[in-house]
Amino acid sequence: MCCTDGMIESGGLTAVVEQSLLGGPRRYTRTQVAELSGVPVDRARKLWVALGFPAAASDDEVAFTDNDVAAVRAFATLNPTSVASEHSQIAAARTLGQAMARLAEWQADLITREIGGHLAADGGEPTPEARREAIARAIAVLADLQDYAWQRHMAAALSRSHESGGATRQLLVGFADMVGYTRLSRHLDPDELTELLETFEATTTEAITGHGGWVIKNVGDEVMFAAENARDGARIALDMNAAISRAAQAIPEMPQIRVGLAYGPVLTRFGDLYGTVVNIAARLTGVARPGTVLVDDGAAAELDDDADLTLRHLRSVRVKGFSRLRSHVVRERKRR
């Protein structure tokens, strides 16, 4: 692969991968990994697959490094003393693998585009050594930034309410999605669609974090978020709508959003949220009118005495999983 078209020569990449990312050459078989880590071969294989990597063709294929041995040994410190705890260990590996795979795909695209472009801009044909050095520098910078971001997010997560020590927490759950995104995306070129999605993600993330909430996940044209209380959640939603309206002045194609909120006990599992409250928030998003915020009874009860907000109670609606779902429109109170 040549740097002049934004790609990176494969030989240089292979060398950096082996030396900088894999912790050295591949020198162990799966059987040897099991022996060195003290983890049975079958469990080591399950952990490997759960992390999102293809299984070696056989237990005797030399495919693993010192870092792989250390990782399997680290998982073993979770001390699975029962089938249930072993399943939890595998689930943890799967969640970690999925999150890291998505992050790595973005980082790999960034490196191939940016590094290749910089090398080409310098003029002439860069040597393989120059390519390897550029890749290694980029990897080092991204690794430092990744550690920094993880530490800050860990500090923020630990500072939130985890006093119960259980899997269930009382939270505000919200969804926001772009109205008519599927139809709109059909006639936008890739650059226009990228600008649209980046504006949506940046705008919603700023509103969420600005009121003490946190993003659970972005899925295309939708963001799922959480907040400690209904008041913060309502302000997040109203700020989102206002910010999207402002963005539409610069980007005519920017569609309106609709937001659904629900408050109550939710199951927290590997950074995601589950339960009836989550389902209600999703259903309310689906029936909300463009530019509006709908909340459930739980959130409405928490917001009823908020002097800055007004609630308009709507008729019950029938949605998937709920025969009579009550909803309420939240708006900012107009000052005279």
Rank of each mutant, 00 (worst) to 15 (best):
Q249D: 08
M240T: 03
S20F: 13
D60F: 11
S159F: 00
V49K: 14
D297K: 11
A63H: 07
H162D: 04
S88M: 15
L22K: 08
M178C: 00
D42C: 08
A56L: 06
V173D: 01
H313T: 15
A101Q: 13
M100Y: 11
L188V: 03
R246V: 04
L158P: 00
N218D: 00
L311M: 10
T276C: 12
L273T: 06
L184V: 08
T205K: 08
E201K: 02
L96N: 10
E61K: 12
T14P: 00
L284M: 05
H87T: 15
T204P: 01
A71S: 13
A242C: 02
G210T: 07
A288F: 04
R27C: 06
R235Q: 07
A104Q: 12
V287I: 15
H162Y: 04
L261G: 09
G12F: 01
E192A: 14
P190C: 10
A44Q: 09
A130Y: 00
A55I: 05
T4C: 15
R235N: 09
R131Q: 14
L267E: 09
A34T: 09
G23S: 05
L13V: 14
T112A: 11
T31H: 06
L261C: 05
E133H: 09
A242W: 02
G321L: 06
Q19R: 15
P265R: 13
P252W: 09
P252A: 12
G123T: 09
T203P: 05
M1K: 10
L172D: 12
L145G: 12
L196R: 05
H153S: 13
V173C: 01
I280P: 02
A143D: 07
W48D: 10
E129N: 02
E195P: 00
R132E: 08
S164M: 02
A230D: 06
A307I: 07
R186G: 01
A57V: 09
L309I: 01
D191V: 15
L103G: 07
A237T: 05
A307M: 04
A56V: 03
V223C: 02
I251Q: 08
A15E: 13
D191G: 01
R169L: 14
M1R: 04
S327K: 01
